[in-house]
Design a binder for these strands. Structure first.
Length: 649
RNA sequence: GCCGACGUAGCUCAGUGGUAGAGCAACGGUUUCGUAAACCGUAGGUCGUGGGUUCAAAUCCCACCGUCGGCUCCA
């Protein structure tokens, strides 16, 4: 007999090898390495896959034993806690039917159908208590391959677990498994259909919190059963849980709707309608500053600015195909002289009209049209959200028309522009290449050409990117950029799409070197996305503390008493002459009071002026963060702040 | 659109069937001040809207509107 049949060789992460008896599990491996590791082991990373601790190993496997110190183990923890929650819910509400309970970032959720009961926040603490009990009972979590799938399906059906029955039916040929919750005598108390992996027991589950209840649909299909979803978070250590809850609190403090009230930024009005934003002077100033920056950047990169109408005859959207494929997001037609017109949902058809207004030569290309174009889209009432999800918004839209040969270079240029702008705002970002989806227009060659150009540009810039297989839109592959803000939250950022549809529909062509007509390649791109969403996001990114170049008021002059008003006015005039956004606060309040107000408004600089300063052409500078910076000459201060503004700090 | 919660003064909130309250902001006056809240006073609400129950409704019931948390989609 050769040794392979009785012994396994396992590779360890440090490169060493270890021999074990055939049939050994990851737990056996842990024990063979060290008792301490065995005690701490909660699962295993087998050939890069997270698995149960009691998984049987195969010869040649590379295995890393997972403990609570490994990030991968959070997946095991959260997934297992989801089951504990489901078990608790069914203990409290025996009529509850369980659906699915996946892990999500920082936690998990589980969907239930609970006939005759609507979950309330009070229920959450009851469920938490029950979960604690299940943890104390230290139930074993045992993987169980289903021997007779059809029998199990009818068992689920008899027990009323219709969702589980449906799932099992679908996965019947994938050797499905149940996870059994067993008491210390090995008696099964509860089970759930699940692929796993899980922790070895519930005693490991300690630091969790149920966060909110919400509605959802079975299989995310609104035609199917409406379910109740419980969201929860879970961590190994109570301190991690507390940190997470603190992060949530911090995020809440940054909420742009909340900051808007403190800083007087924007409003929406019942009389006007939901999802329509009114920009107050403070935020309008920030937006105008960003737009100036945007224009400057685009001008320098060879873009041309255009403006297009906000309404257009329906014909236009018939040609573009928006009416057919995007119709449910468009507002209904208005009658103008008997002709149906529509509010524009996208800027592209308009830009194409300009392109097509004359014959274009290959020598004209690339043509880069850019517009801060306001569009209107119907969004269901339930999805509207402050400035981040609205019904009327302004895109920083651009369409580039070029030859196939120019495509990669254009994309490269766009990525460069994106990098410059996002870095200016202090966002980190990551790129995703979204490839051809199942339903698509155009030929395979076109898709290959377009996707290839996107990928080549990413590679030539050495940009880290992930491929989102099938994530493209039906008419275009695209690069999506995700932004990471000051507290690490992800935001949808710039997008670049190579359109394979509109150039055909509108017959967008140029005359080539050969004197023939050729179809132009068209790229859509937005960097900021929409002014509404971008500015909403910026408010949260900066927590309302806008850098000086963006701050609505950059300087406030505070005369100490009435007799200093005249000098303060001179200082103010100097600042304004230097294009600094400055104001004076000469209210009849104490200096302390006015400083406090300026601090709370996050005004970068406060200039306090009294007798000493007036006598000396000076100002006493206070910075919102660094405090008292001492006295300096007015001209010196103007120079300092002008530099800061110019450097976009 | 669907599920749930919520809607009281400009803002933050108290008020669970019996005469609508507080703090801040606003306004008037006094104070003229040196780096995060001076003092006194005045005014401000059809309690989201409409209907119902009741002797009596901010409070209980119904409908609608809006907001918030999600579901789906996306800038």
């Amino acid at each position: 007999m050769s040794k392979v049949e009785t012994q396994l060789t396992i590779n360890l992460p440090d490169g060493s090898k270890r021999n074990l008896e055939c049939g050994a599990t990851a737990a056996d491996l842990a024990q063979s390495i060290a008792q301490g590791l065995y005690r701490k082991a909660v699962g295993a990373l087998i050939n890069g896959e997270i698995r149960d601790l009691f998984s049987v190993l195969s010869d040649g496997d590379t295995v890393k034993i997972l403990t609570a110190d490994d990030v991968e183990s959070l997946e095991l923890l959260r997934h297992s806690t989801a089951h504990v929650m489901a078990e608790a819910v069914q203990r409290i509400f025996p009529q509850a039917k369980i659906a699915i309970g996946p892990t999500i970032t920082d936690g998990f959720y589980y969907d239930f159908e609970i006939p005759g009961h609507t979950l309330s926040t009070e229920d959450l603490s009851k469920i938490e208590d029950e979960m604690k009990r299940i943890s104390q009972e230290n139930q074993r979590i045992v993987r169980h391959q289903i021997p007779d799938v059809d029998k199990q399906i009818s068992e689920f059906k008899n027990g009323g677990e219709k969702f589980k029955a449906e799932l099992l039916e679908e996965h019947k040929h994938e050797s499905p498994t149940l996870y059994l919750m067993q008491d210390k005598d090995g008696k099964t108390i509860w089970n759930d259909l699940c692929r796993g992996p899980h922790l070895p027991n519930t005693g490991l589950i300690k630091a969790f919190k149920l966060l909110k209840v919400s509605g959802s649909y079975w299989r995310a299909d609104e035609k199917r059963e409406q379910l109740q979803r419980i969201y929860a978070t879970c961590w190994w250590k109570t301190s991690d849980l507390e940190d997470y809850l603190k992060r949530l609190e911090e995020a809440e403090k940054r909420d742009h709707r909340k900051l808007s009230k403190q800083l007087d930024l924007f409003s929406v009005h019942d009389e006007v309608g939901p999802g329509l934003i009114f920009w107050h002077p403070n935020l309008a100033t920030i937006r105008a500053t960003i737009e100036d920056f945007w224009r400057d950047v685009h001008r320098k990169r060879g873009y041309q600015f255009v403006f297009t109408p906000h309404i257009a005859s329906e014909q236009l959207y018939e040609i573009s195909g928006h009416l057919q494929s995007y119709g449910e997001n468009m507002y209904s037609a208005m009658d103008i002289d008997g002709q149906p017109y529509r509010a524009k949902p996208m800027n592209c058809p308009g830009h194409i009209m300009i392109y097509r207004s004359r014959l274009r030569s290959y020598r004209d290309l690339p043509v880069r049209f850019a517009e801060l174009g306001t569009v209107y889209r119907y969004e269901r009432s339930g999805v509207l959200h402050g400035m981040l999800r609205v019904r009327g918004f302004t895109q920083d839209d651009s369409h580039i028309f070029c030859t196939p040969e120019q495509l990669e270079g254009e994309i490269n240029g766009i990525l460069d522009l994106i990098d410059f702008m996002m870095t200016t705002f202090g966002y980190k970002y990551k790129a995703y290449l979204a490839t051809r989806p199942e339903k698509y227009l155009g030929t395979d060659e076109e898709w290959a050409m377009a996707t290839g150009a996107l990928e080549a540009a990413l590679k030539s810039r050495n940009l880290d990117y992930e491929v989102d297989e099938g994530g493209g839109v039906f008419y275009a592959p695209k690069i999506d950029i995700k932004l990471y803000d000051a507290i690490g939250r992800e935001w949808q950022g710039p997008t670049v799409q190579v359109d394979l549809n509109l150039p055909k529909r509108f017959d967008v062509t140029y005359i080539g070197e050969d004197g023939e007509r050729h179809q132009a390649v068209m790229v859509h791109r937005a960097v900021l996305g929409s002014m509404e969403r971008f500015c909403g996001g910026l408010i949260e990114h900066y927590a309302g503390v806008f850098p000086t170049w963006l701050a609505p008021t950059q300087v406030i002059v505070l005369p100490i008493s009435d007799r200093h008003q005249e000098y303060a006015a001179q200082v103010l005039a100097k600042l304004r002459a230097a294009d600094v956004r400055a104001n004076m606060d000469d209210k009849s309040e104490t200096v302390n009071y006015r400083i406090r107000e300026a601090q709370m408004q996050q005004i970068p600089f406060m200039l306090i002026v009294g007798d000493k300063e007036a006598a000396d052409s000076a100002v006493a500078v206070r910075h919102r963060r660094d405090g008292d910076l001492g006295v300096q000459k007015v001209d010196d201060f103007v120079e300092l702040i002008t530099k800061e503004i110019k450097e976009r700090k």
